[in-house]
């Protein structure tokens, strides 16, 4: 019940009641956007990715932070693969995690 699904806001259907359409995996769903609205007009959330819980968008997903996490994890993966390769080549090598 606490699991949210990511979706992209595609349309505002009723600004007065804070309702809009969110595309969740290709399915359009009516979602309440009150909790992800900014100070400006509600239209501003169109295009943003949000987490949807029980019919409400409860938070925005920050694309830059998401990309930064993935990049850091890819680098970590490469570093780990490299360390294993080095260790395989030279059993004496017992370095620290970079």
């Amino acid at each position: 019940m606490c699991l949210g699904i990511p979706g992209q806001v595609v349309e505002i259907t009723d600004a007065a009641s804070m309702m809009g359409m969110v595309d969740v995996s290709g399915v359009r769903r009516a979602v309440n956007l009150a909790c992800v609205a900014g100070d400006g007009p509600l239209e501003e959330v169109i295009g943003h990715w949000v987490l949807v819980h029980v019919g409400f968008a409860m938070s925005r997903i920050d694309p830059e932070e998401a990309a930064a996490t993935l990049k850091a994890l890819e680098d970590l993966g490469e570093a780990m693969a490299e360390i294993e390769a080095i260790r395989g080549a030279d059993r004496m090598m017992e370095g620290e995690t970079p």
Partner: peptide
């Protein structure tokens, strides 16, 4: 699904598992 599939990536998980195994 965007923002889901990337975080189920086998290669990333493997890298993390190696890092955990080295860190413990």
């Amino acid at each position: 699904m965007k923002y889901v599939d990337e975080y189920r990536d086998g290669a990333l998980a493997k890298g993390l598992l190696r890092a955990i195994a080295r860190a413990v």
